[in-house]
Design a protein around this nucleic acid. Structure first.
Lengths: 186, 186
DNA sequence: CCCCTTCCATACGGTGGCGTACAGAAGAGC
DNA sequence: GCTCTTCTGTACGCCACCGTATGGAAGGGG
């Protein structure tokens, strides 16, 4: 059996990369092939068609950014605050990765706005994340309403911040975000 | 001079509607024509090409959601808190409009992630909005850092909330959002 | 009633991307 | 070196959409 020259995973990763930078309509098979240094000849040996690729891209994304990340955070142990800090850090430093990166996350969110299937996946991911956040915040917040507020803030501020294009004011955006993060953990 | 049957503004509005529901790649001329009950024959009498339409769509959007809304809020008068409440209300009730609606806003944000020209426009809009928010929050917040935090929260939570797909928890999303809004005005 | 302007329908060529077909290269195992 | 499998290059038909050209409808102004 000849060595797989450009394996299945290559197409998926390159697809996610294209999705992150150009949206779902930028996931063109001939385009991915060129980025991989081949032609589309081999593509249809792995995937039935373009939709099949999109599906598998979403499969890997869905796992990686929910159970994948949570498992990685839990593996390191520590109390709730330590895990939250570790989670924030992990999410920040994977920022430009093709799968767990924030750009892929945002691209999927934008995509979900006009594709029911993607919306359903995103719903699962966000539910899973919120469930995890609730469990962590509850460990040092007794008021359940306060827990809900902090969970929603943690998630929406992170997403909204990346869609927000304003320049820095007197304080830099990073500074303000750090202040907000500190308050969430108080 | 014959009455303009489907005027310039129709194409722009329908274009924004398509943008809001399907993203920029859904703004197909022949598609808009069908939605308007005509063919694309008349389109090229108004616009040089598809890009010209996109530009004009963004022009109207940019004005409406920045100076347009601000002027409408200021016209009603009142102190800073009253204006903020009015702003939040106005933004909420225009939610499904084709121009000022949140879906158009989100579509433009998603679009800006992979189009430099759109990103520049969005930057202008967000700077204008932040400037206005700062002026309002400063009137009852003495601490400038606190002003920055509230401005960023107001903007990012609103955006992030619409990109967030999780189901309601113990408290409904609307309830939690109301709590956050109340805190911002305290 | 006719003209004239404005808008619309239709047909056309051009382009880009999808999916298929098939032949050839590139190794692995013998 | 031969063969067999697997992957890749190339060519093709197809479709959606863009932008253009042109004839014709619709309605106001004289």
């Amino acid at each position: 059996m000849g060595t797989t020259r450009t394996p299945r995973a290559s197409w998926i990763e390159q697809g996610l990369r294209a999705l992150a930078t150009g949206g779902p309509d930028a996931v063109r098979i001939e385009n991915l092939a060129q980025s991989l240094g081949v032609t589309k000849g081999g593509f249809y040996g792995y995937f039935r068609n373009r939709d099949a690729l999109l599906t598998e891209m979403l499969d890997t994304w869905e796992y990686e950014v929910s159970d994948g990340i949570i498992a990685q955070v839990d593996r390191a142990g520590g109390d709730a605050r330590a895990r939250l800090e570790r989670l924030f850090l992990l999410v920040a430093e994977a920022a430009d990765g093709p799968v767990r990166g924030i750009t892929a996350d945002l691209a999927v969110r934008a995509w979900a706005r006009h594709d029911a299937g993607v919306a359903e996946r995103l719903r699962r991911v966000d539910n899973r994340r919120m469930h995890y956040l609730r469990s962590l915040f509850s460990e040092f917040c007794t008021d359940t309403d306060e827990v809900e507020v902090r969970c929603l803030l943690a998630v929406t501020v992170r997403i909204g911040n990346h869609f927000h294009a304003a320049d820095d004011g007197i304080r830099s955006r990073a500074d303000v975000m750090a202040t907000i993060r500190k308050r969430l953990l108080s």
